[in-house]
Design a protein around this nucleic acid. Structure first.
Lengths: 257, 257
DNA sequence: CGTTGGCTTGATAATCGTCAATTTTAGTGG
DNA sequence: CCACTAAAATTGACGATTATCAAGCCAACG
């Protein structure tokens, strides 16, 4: 149904051999990080004094490399500092379903705060820089710190809401609506205000879109070609330009993106 | 695409007028409840002495009545004591997507522990008895009690995992697989060990199955008729009987249910 | 005993998938 | 920086799955 694109079979998971390709020399700690005061990082920042053992170190991952493989033991918790990842599952017959896309500031997989293994895998979409935390130490911190727990709970609830929005997309929207909504959603996550045109880094292949939205790559191609011909968007060399936001929103089903 | 079945438009939400039809006379408290030591109720049980203000009271809801309507202010938190509910969203054009089915021991909607409104609605599938908690009091309790927070977090994470499983169903499985898996899943939730045949209360209409799985009622009817003709199941008068678990699992796609 | 909600069934149509060939783009090494 | 190669995207022809429309049936219920 949807053959995975031929992506690296080798796994040099940082969760398994974390020092394998770490550019630790470039590591400058949280103090100089622009994500320092955003999302969960701000919580970590606050708890830093009392919990020095949750200090992360950095690792680099090449595009397409696996960060985690389904059913492995997770040894670390990681936050994305730079780049994009995606989380997916594959059925035995090879059908792939992408569950989410990770961007800077996101946990690679929130599940590992509560679980030790998962049914999904995580792969780098672009070159990625990760902040690696000792799993035990961070689990301990989150579980014992009320503010951290509240923040994390909010994170998971938001994720759940996001998954439910996806369910509505998959269950009750046409391929055009799904694709238009996905593009708009990615634009929003990339900092788009929603006003006027917008250009942004879009390293996502049609096969990824297909596997995210329950379609085939061929069909995604057709729809995107149509959007392009209609002048809604321009797409090329990793850059997506929304040229007619209104029309794209119409294609997305009018109301709420 | 999927017109809602003509279900009660009237909303006598207990969240809005909680005393409206409470059979408070029958209320016997948690002590006599068989769910007392299960799931989240056990946590409430433990915190009872120190937090007497989280004591629930009971309400009855008739089948098809709305328990919560999208975008309303939620005034209570509720746990299902008896009966079944479902949570859904509708697009402006009437397409309905069911997000989950609630059974005894489940929160009617976990979201309201963290949020005050939601984008979904909740309706009773059967006559339902609810344990109603004062929202503020229960929120306060959960937020301040570490054990409760852990338990609740675990609950949300499980829900998230469940939603992700649904995403895989919707995105990458055929209608037959989806329906077979749904039936097996409901059997499991109803106490089926997975061994041998199983008969259980199944008050779910074909329209609900359709709206859960992103199909039409007509198509659900065809698939179920096929399952019945093949001797996998018997279905009638609110009772589902799995007569050939092996065959049904095959139809569900072989591996894992 | 007629009405209503839910289910079944047939005929037909739309959406989306499959297969396959071809072009374009991106990545890599010289 | 160019040339070569692999990956990704495009396009057409065809087919399968699932939706739509419509009519009729059945069982529960007032």
């Amino acid at each position: 149904m949807s053959p995975s694109s031929p992506e690296s079979r080798r796994t040099v998971s940082p969760a398994e051999s974390p020092r394998s390709r770490g550019n630790d020399s470039e590591w400058s700690g949280c103090n100089s990080c622009h994500l320092r005061d955003q999302g969960f990082c701000s919580i970590l920042q606050q708890g830093r004094k009392s919990n020095p053992e949750v200090e992360p170190r950095e690792t680099s991952i090449r595009a397409r490399q696996h960060i985690y493989r389904a059913k492995d033991q997770a040894r670390h918790l990681a936050i994305i500092r730079e780049g994009m990842t995606f989380r997916y599952v594959t059925a035995t017959d090879g059908r792939r379903q992408i569950l989410s896309v990770g961007m800077p500031g996101d946990f690679v997989a929130t599940s590992f705060v509560v679980r030790d293994t998962a049914h999904f895998s995580v792969q780098a979409l672009t070159p990625v820089r990760l902040c690696l935390f000792d799993k035990k130490a961070l689990q301990q911190f989150i579980r014992s710190d009320l503010a951290a727990l509240h923040c994390f709970l909010d994170l998971i609830v938001s994720e759940k809401e996001s998954r439910e929005a996806q369910i509505v997309d998959l269950g009750r929207r046409t391929s055009e609506e799904r694709i238009a909504r996905f593009l708009l959603h990615m634009a929003t996550r990339s900092g788009w205000s929603g006003e006027g045109g917008f250009s942004f880094h879009f390293p996502i292949r049609q096969q990824h879109i297909a596997d995210m939205l329950g379609l085939t790559q061929v069909h995604v191609s057709r729809v995107i070609s149509k959007f392009r011909r209609s002048g809604f968007i321009q797409l090329g060399s990793g850059l997506l330009k929304i040229t007619d936001p209104y029309a794209l929103r119409q294609a997305a089903g009018g109301r709420n993106v």
